[in-house]
Structures are given as C-alpha cells and as structure tokens.
Design a protein around this nucleic acid. Structure first.
Length: 571
DNA sequence: AGTGGATGCGGCC
DNA sequence: TGGCCGCCCTCCAC
C-alpha cells in the first residue's frame, strides 16, 4: 500500500517516480537457499548493496535511486524506487521475514526459531509437525507403557489404578481487563475461597478478584512499587498473603485491609545504583517449619519466619554468585527438600537443613536460563522445568539418577523482553501427575487469525493434549494457573485475566434454571461495567474484544497434514 | 563470543 | 493527533 500511496501523492510537478518490482515477485516465500542468493541489481545505476542501505534508518524495503539530473531538458530528475525485498532480520535481500497474513515467515538464514537448530525454519521444523509435539526420546524408560505401569504399581501401590482422562478447561467464561494497568506477572488461587483469584503485575499492583461474582475485585497499589514476582498463601492463615517483588521486599498483607507488613527489605539503604539493587524473585512457603523461603538476583536464599515475620536465616548462596534465582519450590511430601532454578542454567535440589555453598543434592543442567522448576504436586517425586531454550524437561523420579531428564519436550516459550517468562505448571488435580499447562509463544494461523494457544501437555508422553484458544484473545498467554480443586484455569495475558472452564461445566450451567452460560461471559472495565453483560455488548474497548461476537472454538490440529481442523469435540 | 537485561515503537483507534 | 496497546530474531554491556 505504501508505494501506491506515494505514487498517488506525487503530482506531475515533482519528479516522476518509477516503481520497479523485484523480479522474484512472488507472494509466497520459498525457503530454498537460492532465494537469498539471487540478489538482483534492480534499477539503473543500482550500485547499492547492504552497506549502502545502512544498517539503520531504512524503515522500508525500498531503495531510492536518484539519477543524474537531465541537463539538456527541464524535466525533473527521475527517481526510481525498486521494491526489493529486504529481510528485517538479517537485512539480506531476496526474502522477507515477518507475518504474511496470520502466518509468520522465518528468516531462512537464522536457526529454527522453535528448536534452535540450523537448516530449517519453524514452518518445517520436525518438532512442529511431529505428532507428539517434539518430544525427545527419553534416555531411560519411564512409566508410560502399560508394563512399566504395572511394575510401578507393584512397587508403589499409591499409584492410581487407572489413569483418568484429562479434564481441559477450554471454554472462556470470564474476562476482565484494565484490572491491571501493566502486564500480569503472577497468579494464585485462594487456598480456601474457591472463586478468589489473586494476581500481581509489573507495576506492583495486587488484584483480588472473586470471579464468581464478577464485579468483586480489589486492587491494592501500595504493597509493592514494581514487579510482583510471586504471591503465596500460608495455609495456616488464609487471610494473609505473601508477595515478593523486584522492589527488593517481601510483604505479608492482610487481604481485608491491604496493609502490608514488610518482612524483608534487601535494599535498606535505598537506591545506590543498579548494580547493587536486590530484587526478590523465587518464593515458597514451608508450612511445616513456618518459613517463607525467598531468593534474590544475587544467587542467595533467605528464610523468613511466619510468626515473628522477620528474617530467620540467610543469605545462603545457592546459585552462582551474582545470578538471579528465578524460582523456589518446596517438596509437597518432604518440605525440607527445596528445588531452586536460576539464570545460571541450573535447577538445583537442596536439603534446607543442610545448606552450604555447593551442598546441593542434585544439579539439573539446562541449555539456558531456567524459568521455573516444580516438584510434582502430590508425590513430589517428579520434576518439571521450563527453560528459554524452548524445552520443557521432565524428570520422572528424583530417587534415581538425575543426570539427564527423562524427557525433553520442544515447546515455544522463548523469553521476549516484553513478556512475563513462561512457566509450565502441573495440574494439581491430576492423580497421574502428568498433565501440565503452559502458554505458547509462536502463533498458529487459525482461520486467518494468528493466535497463541495455551497448551496442555501430557508430560508422560510429551504429547500435546489440547491447545486452547479463543478467537478474540490474540495476545500471548504467558501466565497460567490451574485451580487446586476445581476444573478451572486462570490465565494472565498481557494485562487481562481470563477464567476458563470445561465445556461440560458450561453446559451444566446452562441447564440450571434461570442461569445462562453467558452470564459468566462478561466485560468489565474500571469506569463502567455491565452486570449481565453479553459478549457482544458495545463495551468492547474494556475487554479488548474487537467488536466480534465471542465464539469459543476448539481446534484440533492435524500435525501430519499440517491442516487445521475445527472440532467441537473434547480433546 | 555469547548471553542476560533493558524498556521502544509501530500500529491502531 | 495523541494516547494506548502489545510485542516471532533488538541492542548493548558484561
């Protein structure tokens, strides 16, 4: 459109502009190497190459060529614009990276954006087209076969008799926006009040939302001054929440009053420069010992006493000095076991009764920064980690050799500087401890719309169980939390929150007299909100739904054929 | 050289 | 026009 606009804008009084298209003027990009070798010289006097164009300040893929002024006539000099394709990624010619409709075309000169291997693009990545969504075969056998399962059951009778069907909350029920004024960074369900969701954002706001009543929301602005990295509850006192923040503090806040008590301030002398500023990232609660465990961006762990609300231990150096400890997780069965992960590319297992530098029980090496590491929620015997090397890793048993993971699942979860890091999380209700939820970074083309699904992955097989999308949610859903008791998924996507339920639940609601499912689909804003607002109300701006009627769809993708099938069935 | 951290900017109402 | 929104390969320093 731009060239046409320019051509139209040029009147006959200014220099004529010739627009010459690059000769390989194809709408479709072919990823053969010849495409970026045939850099044609287009236009008279075209001596320009990449250097001539400059590395910056070239906003379009056009080249301007000023021909020498014609001194023999009064005709203005001719300007030729050639529409030579310039790749915005490698600045090379003959190909272009970027969206073509709702499909993203990779730069063929770069390694695959998904698996990071050279030689192919994301479009043709074997992990993208694989039936099992890119699972790397386990170096050791696991419990995924029937025979193994029987053996395991003989050894451990607590293993459930039958692996139950996964329940996928895939139908959008509530959406709320402008609840947060910056992107959502963490979510936590209330431990006893089933429909209360707490959320933190980049700005330091903490939201408390009762999604069953829709309008019952409270936002506290004064608990933290910047990124809320974690929210946790002490099960002994569910009226109090703990939050850790990049402002360097850990707060203990009464939910009713919103008045925080600062349990830890790692920057008591205030700002003395970015190099010295400490931020609190990982946090978990050890209920047995009455401890809040937190960790900072200098590789240190601290203990806080929940009763005296003061520091009870630390700092203990648990990751490479000066690197960020991103996550902490206490083992649900043996709370003395602590799992930490950080920017030093490791997840580490510790016995908190014996903490010394280098005393970790196990060190789980990753390809790059580890965003999260969690013990499995029931037995605590498995480990699930998320790394920005685009791999989810699963260790099937912490009682065996931990040298390498049981499985590596290739999954798009790169960190983008504007996004909250992706974290794959267990479904706490799954008795088989295999279902995990995680948002996907790269988009898929769903009927001409680029959408970022929320993936449910069977970590026992690496198989993608379901990809949950909503045609009206076009943002990346980085923060996902499954309810500890209900079949509910909460999603933080950009600055919006969403609640999902299984389709069956929605239908059950519809069957109840006087109750409609659409009551649960509501749009709400700060200024005005509509009680039983239907999805196609005119208050779209507050929800980010772009004037469309919400039709929750489920798509089933055929990976072998590469085609997308619509399906209303259950995955 | 590789990687972590920072927060800009184009598109759209 | 200005402010808001959200981000598929930046850019720089260590």
């Amino acid at each position: 459109m731009a060239p046409l606009t320019r051509a139209k804008a040029s009147s006959s009084r200014v220099a004529p502009i010739l627009i010459q298209r690059d000769s390989d003027d194809s709408d479709h990009y072919h990823s053969s190497s010849s495409d970026f070798d045939d850099e044609e010289q287009v236009g008279a006097g075209d001596s320009s190459d990449d250097e001539d164009m400059g590395t910056n300040g070239l906003p379009t893929s056009e080249e301007l060529h000023h021909e020498p002024p014609n001194t023999t006539s009064n005709a203005p000099p001719r300007i030729t614009i050639s529409l030579k394709k310039i790749c915005k990624v490698c600045k090379g010619t003959g190909h272009e990276a970027g969206f073509s409709g709702a499909t993203y075309i990779d730069c063929p000169r770069k390694p695959c954006y998904l698996c990071k291997m050279p030689g192919h693009t994301t479009m043709s990545c074997p992990h993208r087209v694989a039936m099992e969504h890119g699972v790397v075969p386990a170096p050791r056998r696991n419990t995924s076969t029937t025979l193994d399962y029987i053996f395991q059951r003989q050894l451990n009778p607590n293993i459930p008799m039958i692996k139950p069907a996964f329940v996928i909350p895939d139908q959008l029920t509530c959406g709320i926006i402008r609840f947060h004024s910056r992107r959502v960074t963490c979510l936590e369900f209330h431990p006893t009040k089933n429909s209360v969701l707490l959320s933190g954002d980049k700005k330091g706001q903490v939201g408390i939302w009762d999604y069953s009543k829709l309008h019952e929301k409270t936002v506290y602005n004064s608990i933290h001054t910047c990124i809320v990295n974690n929210i946790k509850f002490n099960t002994d006192n569910d009226g109090t929440m703990y939050a850790s923040s990049s402002d360097g503090t850990v707060s203990c806040t009464d939910l009713e009053t919103g008045v925080p008590f600062v349990m830890l301030d790692l920057n008591p002398n205030g700002w003395i420069g970015p190099a010295a500023w400490r931020m609190v990232y990982g946090m978990d609660i050890n209920t047995e010992k009455g401890l809040v465990l937190v960790a900072d961006n200098f590789g240190c762990l601290y203990f806080l006493d929940t009763r005296s609300r003061t520091r009870a231990g630390g700092p203990f150096l648990i990751h490479r000095k000066g690197t960020k400890v991103v996550g902490l997780n206490c083992n649900p069965v043996e709370p003395g076991l602590l799992l930490s992960c950080g920017n030093d590319h490791f997840a580490r297992i510790w016995d908190i009764r014996r903490l010394e530098a280098g005393s970790s029980l196990d060190n789980l090496r990753h390809g790059r920064v580890v965003n999260s590491a969690y013990f499995s929620p029931r037995t605590g015997s498995k480990i699930l980690t998320t790394s920005i090397d685009n791999r989810i890793r699963v260790w099937d048993s912490i009682f065996t050799n931990m040298e390498s993971p049981s499985r590596e699942i290739v999954h798009s979860q790169d960190f983008n500087r504007h996004l909250t890091p992706f974290r794959a999380e267990w479904d706490p209700k799954d008795p088989s401890e295999s279902l995990a939820v995680v948002g996907r970074y790269i988009s898929e083309n769903y009927d001409g719309v680029a959408l970022h699904p929320i993936d449910f992955i069977d970590t026992a097989s690496g198989k993608l169980v379901a990809e949950v999308i909503e045609p009206d949610i076009t943002t990346i859903s980085t923060v996902n939390k499954l309810h500890p008791r209900d079949d509910v998924l909460a999603t933080g996507s950009s600055r919006s929150l969403f609640i999902w339920r299984p389709k069956e639940d929605i239908e059950r609601m519809q069957e109840q007299p006087g109750r409609k499912a659409k009551e649960f689909i509501i749009r709400m804003g700060d200024k005005k909100s509509k009680g039983k607002g239907s999805i196609d109300s005119d208050d779209d701006s507050d929800l980010g739904f772009k004037g469309k009627t919400s039709k929750t769809k489920k798509y089933e993708k055929s990976y072998t054929s590469g085609k997308i099938k619509k399906s209303k069935g259950v995955c």
